[in-house]
Computed example of a mutant assay.
Amino acid sequence: MLALIAYPLVYGMVISLYDTNLLNKYDFKWLTNYKDVLTDPGFLKKLYITLKFTVLVVAGNFIVGFVLAILLSMNIKGRAVFRAILVLPWLFPEVVVALIWKWLYNPLYGLINYYLMEFHWVKEPLDLLGNPNLALFSVAIPAIWKGFPLVLVMIMAGLQSISQDLYEAAEIDGANAWQSIRNVMIPGLMPVLLVTLILETIWWFKHFTIIYLLTSGGPVDATSVLSIDIFKQAFEQFQFGRASATAVLVFIICLLISYLYRRLLRDDDK
């Protein structure tokens, strides 16, 4: 624990207080790096893009995962096969996911533009990753494709823990399908939903791989999330102190998000 978690975490926080090249330059700056980051308008812009990306992906994961979990909890033919197939995106490495979708998005030979043209939905191919108005949404779709199986598995596990007696009691009381979902299913899933929501939000808030491989933060910083900004500060501009300060701020934001979720979605009956 000390070697793998505590030391890197503390070391990153210490580095954020210095102007350093990690070799022979360690100029103590105290909180100057934090001040520079927080007063930089670009930080707030990238924070907004990061929040927007996180909301899109987490909402998409929960919508797709929740709907599929309900369908797969029904007694349908071939349910086990569908469960195995729908978990496959989760098993792919993120690099593979990014390369697959980069090929699908290609304006010259990508399948997405091919079918858009085939069904006459567009008159000319769309540069989905090169258009600043479409890039963030286009990057969010592969992230949703990669991430929804986790939500699917978690919700399916939660559904199995809800007693069928509760559904039968609700049906006897005259509840329809929507009322059963709202008053029986959702409360029963709340502990699972809370854990899943926290994990999903934190994971996609600090996500790097898919976005970087698809757009590298472009075009015109349309997909420049905080993780990419940290990478460029550290390994392109060699501002390791400022990059560490930004990373510490991301860590604090993730802690605040987790705390707010637990406060807003806590079970008041316990």
Rank of each mutant, 00 (worst) to 15 (best):
N21I: 14
F119Y: 15
D127S: 12
W204G: 03
L256A: 14
Y212P: 07
I198V: 15
K123T: 12
L2F: 13
L150Q: 12
I198N: 07
R263H: 13
L72K: 00
N176K: 14
T32W: 06
A234P: 13
D173F: 08
W178H: 06
D27T: 15
Y167K: 06
R83M: 06
K206R: 15
K102R: 14
A177Y: 15
L47I: 12
A84D: 01
L189M: 03
P142M: 04
D27M: 09
I15R: 06
P8L: 10
T50M: 10
L91S: 09
L194T: 15
Y34M: 04
T209M: 04
A157I: 04
V220E: 13
V184H: 04
L249P: 13
A143W: 00
A170F: 08
V10E: 05
V64A: 14
D173L: 09
R262F: 11
N75A: 05
N61T: 12
Y11N: 09
F251H: 12
I186K: 07
P8V: 01
K102P: 09
S258F: 02
L47W: 11
V195P: 08
Y7R: 03
S73P: 01
A170V: 04
A247M: 12
F235N: 03
V248M: 13
D268N: 12
E118L: 12
V153F: 09
A80Q: 06
N21V: 14
F148W: 10
D229K: 06
